[in-house]
Design a protein around this nucleic acid. Structure first.
Lengths: 218, 218, 218, 218
DNA sequence: CATGAATGAGCTTTCATTCAT
DNA sequence: AATGAATGAAAGCTCATTCAT
C-alpha cells in the first residue's frame, strides 16, 4: 500500500519530467521554426522520445503550444511577484530591472513572445491565456508602482490606466526591438527603461532628471 | 517600335496590377491564418486567379511574403516622411499622431506586424528587410524630433539613441497591447502617446506636465 | 466562347471519369480490406492516381464510401425499376429473377453489402443513404407484387408489410449465405427464391406448389 | 501436490474469468466501433485491465476477434440445441421463436452479426469458424424440421437443402433488415417468421393459411 | 500476476510547386 | 496570358504490440 503510493509518486515525477522534456524541446523548435513550422516528429526527436509517446502527455500539438504559453506566463508572473514582494523603493526596483535585463532582451524569449502574440490573433484559446496573464500583470504593476510611490512619497499613490499602459508598451515593445536590432547596445535599453521607470515611480524626481538631461544635451 | 514600347508598357501595367492583386489577397489570408497557415490555393482563390498563374509573378510563397513585407514597410515609410515634411511644431506632431491612431491601433495591422516580426526571427531575408526599414525609421525619427526641438527651442537639438528607442518601444509595443486587450479604451493609448511625445519633444514642458499630474493625483 | 464551353464540357467528362476511377478502385479495396482496412494510398495506387489528387474529387475517405454506397444503391434501384417496367406476369418476374441470380450471388457484391450494412450501424450518414434506398425498394416491391397479382388475378391486390418484409429478408439474407457457403449450388438458391416468389405473387398457385412438394417428399 | 493442483485449478478459473472480461469488453467495443475501429487500449480500459495484460490471454487483436466469433457461435449453437431438444411440435417451435424474437431483433446482435460476416469475407480464419458453425446449424435445422414434420405428420419427413436455405435466408436477413429499419414494428417480423415456419414445418397447413390470407385480402 | 511507458509504422489529409493545354 | 490537373513529400495523429518493472 505504502509501496503502491510510492510507485504512483515516482510515476508522477517521471511523467512531469517527460512533460518538461516535451515542452523544452517544443520551445526550442517553436523558436526556430514557429508554431506551425515545427513538426511533431522534429519535436519528438529533440525530446528524445517517440512521436506517439508525446501524445500520452499532450492531446495535440495545440495543447503543447498552450501549455508552453502558460508556462512562460507563469514564469514571468513569478518573476514579477518576487520583484514586488522584495521591492519597496525605487532603488530596488531599478536593481531588479537591471537584473532582469538579460532575460528581457534575450532573443529567444523575444521570438517566442512574438510567436505567441501573433498566434493569439487567430487562436482564441491562446488569446484567452495571454489575456488573463495580461490582467494579472496589470494588477501587479499597479500594486508595485503604487507601493513604491507610497514609500517614497514621490507622487500620487493612485495609479492610472494610462501609466500602466505606458509601462507595458515599453516592456512589450522590447520583443520587436530586439528582433530588429539584435546588435544594439543593451545599455541603451537599460537607460531607457530606467528613465521611464523613474518618470512613473517618482514623477517629481523624473522631472528633475529630464531637466538634467536637457542640461547635458542629448 | 513605338507600338512595341506601348505594348510593353501596357503589359507592365497589367503585370503590376496582377502583382497587387496577389499581394492584397495574400495580405488578407496571412492576417487570418498566418504565413504558414495560409495556402497558395486559398490565396489564388482570393486573388481570383489560378494557382499556377501566381507563379508567373512570384517565384515562391516566400517571395510573396517578402514582397508583402517590403510593401508594408514602404507604405509606413511614406507615411512617416509625409508626417515629417509637414510637421515642424509639437502641435502638428500631436495632431498627426492623433490622426494616425486608428491605423496604429488597427487589429489587422497589429496582427500582420506581429506575424512579420515573428517570421523575421527565423527568416533572415525578412529580417533584413525589416532591419533596413528600422534603420530608416530611426533616422527619420531622429530628424523629426530634432527639428521640433529646434523650432520650439525646448531642449537639446541632438537626439540620443536612448530617446529614439524609448519612442520606438512605445510605438512597437502597441501590436502586442492591442492583441491582448482589444477592448481597451483608445483614448488611454492616445494620452499615453501624447505624454511620451511631450517628454521627448519638449523635455521642459513635459517636466511641468508631469508635475501637474502629480498635483492631480493619478 | 463556344470553345470555352467545349473545354468545360471536356473537363467535366474527364472529371467524371476520374471520379469513376476512384470509386472503382475504392470498391475493389473495400471489398478486399473493408472500409477501414483499406488505405487511401492503396486506393490511389489502384486508381493509378496520386493520393493528393483523389482529394480534388472527394472531400474525405468517408465521402468516397458514401458515394460508393449511393452508386451501388442506384444500380440496384435501376435494376429493380427495369424489372418492374417490363414485368407484368409471374413468368417474366421469374425470368428476371433467374437472370439476376449471378449478380445477387456474386461474392464481391455480398461482401460490399455486408460491409455497407455493418458500417451503417455506426455511421449515420451511411445509414441514411441505405434507409432511403430501403424505402424506395419497399415501394417498388409493393408495386411490382401488386401489379403481378392484378394481372394474374391470383390473390389480393393489396400487399401487406409482412409480405414485403418476407421478400426482403430473403433477398438480403443472401449476402450472409453466400459468404458462409460459397460453394453451395446456385440452383438451390434459385429454387428457393422461385418458391418464395410464387408464394408471394400467386398465393393460390403456391399453395398447390407446396402441396406438390409434399407429394414429392423433400 | 493436491495443493498444487488446487492452485492450478484456481489459476485456470481466474484466467477464464479474465478472458471473459476481455471478450465482453471487446464485444462492446466492436459493436460500437467495428473490429478495425476498436483499439486495444479502449478494450483494455473497458475490461478494467492493462493493455499489456490482455496479451497474456490473447496473442493478438485478431485472436480476440476469432475467440469472440467462436463464443457467439457456441452460444447460438447451444440455444438452437435447447430449442430442438425441447421442441417437437409446431406449437413449441412457434413459442420458442416468439421467445427468441427480442434476441433476434436486437440491434447490437445484428451489428455484430454483420461485422462478423463482413470480416469473414476477407479473413479466412473467421470464415472457417463461421462456415463450420453454419454446417452445424444446417444439420440441427434439418433435424428439427424433420422431427416436427414427423410428429405432426404434416409433410415429407426428408428435408431438402432448398427448404433449409429458405429458412436460413429468412433468419440471416434479419440483421440487415433491423439495421435499415430499426423502428419497424416487431410484430411484422414475427408474423413473417411464423408464416414461413408454418410453410416449412407443415406445408399443408401453410397452404390453407396462405389461402386464408388470400381471402382476407392483404 | 499485472502494469503502462515506449515504439515506430501507418493512417488520413494538406500543401507548394510543376506543366500540359 | 492563363488554367487547374497532377504530384509526392510531409503534416498531425493513432495504433497494435513489446518489455522493463
Amino acid at each position: 500500500m505504502v509501496r503502491c503510493e510510492m510507485v504512483k509518486k515516482a510515476r508522477e515525477i517521471r511523467a512531469d519530467k517527460r512533460r518538461r522534456q516535451v515542452l523544452d524541446a517544443a520551445s526550442a523548435c517553436f523558436r526556430e521554426e514557429g508554431f506551425h513550422g515545427a513538426s511533431m516528429s522534429r519535436i519528438a526527436a529533440r525530446a528524445e522520445m517517440s512521436v506517439g509517446h508525446i501524445y500520452r502527455y499532450f492531446d495535440s500539438k495545440e495543447t503543447i503550444i498552450i501549455a508552453l504559453v502558460q508556462r512562460d506566463c507563469a514564469k514571468f508572473d513569478r518573476w514579477l511577484r518576487r520583484m514586488i514582494s522584495s521591492a519597496a523603493t525605487i532603488e530596488t526596483v531599478i536593481a531588479n530591472l537591471r537584473r532582469g535585463m538579460p532575460w528581457l532582451l534575450n532573443r529567444d524569449r523575444a521570438a517566442i513572445f512574438l510567436e505567441m502574440h501573433a498566434e493569439a490573433g487567430r487562436n482564441s484559446k491562446i488569446a484567452a491565456v495571454l489575456t488573463e496573464m495580461d490582467h494579472n500583470l496589470r494588477c501587479l504593476l499597479k500594486e508595485l508602482i503604487g507601493r513604491v510611490r507610497r514609500t517614497s512619497q514621490s507622487g500620487p499613490e493612485e495609479v492610472t490606466d494610462v501609466t500602466i499602459e505606458v509601462v507595458l508598451l515599453q516592456l512589450q515593445g522590447v520583443a520587436a526591438r530586439v528582433t530588429l536590432n539584435p546588435n544594439l547596445d543593451r545599455s541603451v535599453f537599460l537607460e531607457g527603461f530606467e528613465r521611464v521607470a523613474l518618470a512613473v515611480l517618482a514623477p517629481e524626481a523624473s522631472a528633475q532628471c529630464v531637466l538634467k538631461e536637457a542640461g547635458k544635451a542629448g
